[in-house]
Design a protein around this nucleic acid. Structure first.
Length: 267
DNA sequence: CAATGATCCTGTCCGC
DNA sequence: TGCGGACAGGATCATT
């Protein structure tokens, strides 16, 4: 669920919590959630956060000890700052310990999320090859065209491929394709130049809008009550029955994921 | 190399 | 009230 805007929002909150704080350790409560670089220096902790970076859906924290953390929330991961926490929460898979007894809990019911503790020099060994940031200038129509012109896979699958562009997930891809008026199942090679331009532009627009409302645009739809609302007004097709113009939506399964689209507005 | 499908995992929801 | 099954989806791995 967390896609680029949500990850950025979480990272901003995490940076705020960790500023000027001393990290004293990282605990793991579920096998596999924490991955430790074999070459990690012994003096990884204590350390302060020197820099925080988002790359696609990955959060990277560089520490002043020569170590760093990569945090990936996958689908259900959450970071919760907890002053003076006691027993690990039911779904707490790991915990970042802070000097003074506070902690940041990594809560992840479905256990897909990961925290990697790495030696700074080895960052690249723990990061996959990712395409450009969708909001950067590198992600433009010419770039995208070059990567999809010969592809027969559905445009939606291509946009979900993090090697092509880093940070999009199922929900925003459904939304941006609606805005770009292109059906998700269209083969990459059959997407015209004007359509590619619209896809690129609407990718940037939808992400920018979501960032401006603090990434609350998608979130857990089951927790509507907790979040007062930006996202009900944000989504136009995802998990909807009809598009804003009142046309009944189609729902295809592409790459194993539900794909909402409007058969009338999208060609 | 490209495309597709299975896999990991648990909470939620629906129908009976 | 409880049960089984479908579903949710990011990334990786296996298969064709």
């Amino acid at each position: 669920m967390p896609e680029l805007p949500e990850v950025q929002t979480v990272l901003d909150g995490l940076s705020e919590v960790l500023t000027n704080r001393v990290l004293t350790g990282l605990e793991c409560y579920y096998p596999g959630t924490v991955i430790v670089d074999p070459l990690l220096p012994d003096e990884a902790f204590p350390a302060r956060v020197k820099e925080t970076i988002r790359r696609g859906k990955y959060m990277i924290l560089h520490l002043d000890s020569g170590a760093g953390l990569i945090i990936h929330l996958r689908m259900t991961g959450k970071l919760v700052y907890e002053p003076d926490p006691r027993e690990p929460h039911k779904h707490e898979r790991a915990r970042i310990l802070l000097e003074g007894g506070d902690a940041v809990r990594f809560i992840d019911p479905r256990t897909f999320g990961k925290i990697t503790l790495f030696a700074s020099a080895n960052l690249s060994r723990f990061m996959p090859a990712l395409g450009p940031e969708p909001l950067s200038k590198a992600f433009d129509a010419q770039y995208l065209s070059g990567l999809i012109a010969h592809r027969s896979a559905p445009i939606k699958n291509l946009l979900l491929d993090q090697r092509i562009v880093a940070g999009l997930g199922n929900i925003y891809v459904c939304e941006l394709l609606y805005r770009a008026r292109v059906q998700p199942q269209r083969e990459g090679r059959k997407v015209s130049a004007p359509e590619i331009r619209r896809i690129v532009n609407h990718t940037k627009d939808v992400l920018q809008e979501a960032l401006e409302v603090g990434g609350t645009s998608i979130s857990d739809y089951r927790r509507i009550d907790d979040k007062s609302g930006e996202f009900q007004h944000f989504l136009r097709v995802y998990q909807k029955l009809e598009c804003p113009k009142g046309h009944p939506l189609g729902n295809l399964r592409l790459g194993g994921r539900s794909s909402f689209y409007c058969p009338v507005c999208q060609k």
